[in-house]
C-alpha cells in the first residue's frame, strides 16, 4: 500500500474546495486553481486527494497539472515573479527581461531560488498590453520594464 502523508487541516481544506465545486470531475481545472491559490503549489499529495474527491484518476489530474504552465508542482517563492510572454510584451522585449531575471537570480523558469524568496514563471497577457513589457511580482504590476530595471525590482524585495 503506497502511503502519502498530509496534515489534517490541509486535507479538510481540499475536501472543502472540491465540495464547493460539487465534487464534479469536469470542474478539475477550477479545483486546481483554487487549490494552488490556497497552498501556493500542487504537490503529489494534493493531487491524490483531489483525484479521490472528484472520482477521477490521479494520472488524469497529473496530466492536467503538467499541461498548463500556470500550475506548479514546486513551491513558488515568497515573491513570485511572472514575466508576460504575450505577443505585445514579447515583441517589446519581454524575452530579454526574462533572460535578465534568470541571469540575476540564477534559476530557470518554473523554479525557486534556494532561499525560497523568488520564483520565475512566464504568463500570457495580463490585459495591460499598453504597458508592455509587463512583469508582475505577487499582486503588483510593473509596466514598460527594461533590462536595466530588473536589478531595481529585485532589490525592492530583498530587504
Amino acid at each position: 500500500m503506497a502511503k502519502i502523508k498530509l496534515a489534517k487541516s490541509k486535507v479538510d481544506k481540499l475536501v472543502e474546495i472540491c465540495k464547493s465545486f460539487d465534487n464534479e470531475g469536469s470542474e478539475l481545472i477550477n479545483v486546481l486553481h483554487k487549490a494552488q491559490q490556497t497552498f501556493g503549489y500542487l504537490p503529489a499529495e494534493v493531487q491524490e486527494i483531489i483525484a479521490r474527491e472528484l472520482n477521477v484518476s490521479v494520472a488524469h489530474v497529473y496530466g492536467v497539472v503538467t499541461f498548463y504552465s500556470f500550475f506548479s508542482m514546486v513551491p513558488k517563492g515568497e515573491f513570485p515573479i511572472s514575466i508576460c510572454m504575450g505577443t505585445a510584451c514579447y515583441v517589446r522585449g519581454g524575452e530579454k527581461v526574462l533572460e535578465e531575471f534568470k541571469r540575476q537570480l540564477n534559476v530557470p523558469v518554473g523554479e525557486t531560488t534556494d532561499d525560497g524568496k523568488f520564483s520565475i514563471s512566464c504568463l500570457r497577457c495580463v490585459g495591460a498590453c499598453g504597458l508592455a513589457p509587463v512583469v508582475t511580482v505577487g499582486e503588483r504590476v510593473y509596466g514598460r520594464v527594461s533590462v536595466g530595471d530588473v536589478a531595481d525590482i529585485i532589490k525592492e524585495y530583498q530587504q
Binding site: M1, K3, K5, K8, V11, E45, V58
Partner: peptide, 9 residues
C-alpha cells in the same frame, strides 16, 4: 489493499 493510503498527520 493496494490503494494509496492517505495518512493524516
Amino acid at each position: 489493499d493496494k490503494s494509496t493510503d492517505i495518512e493524516i498527520e
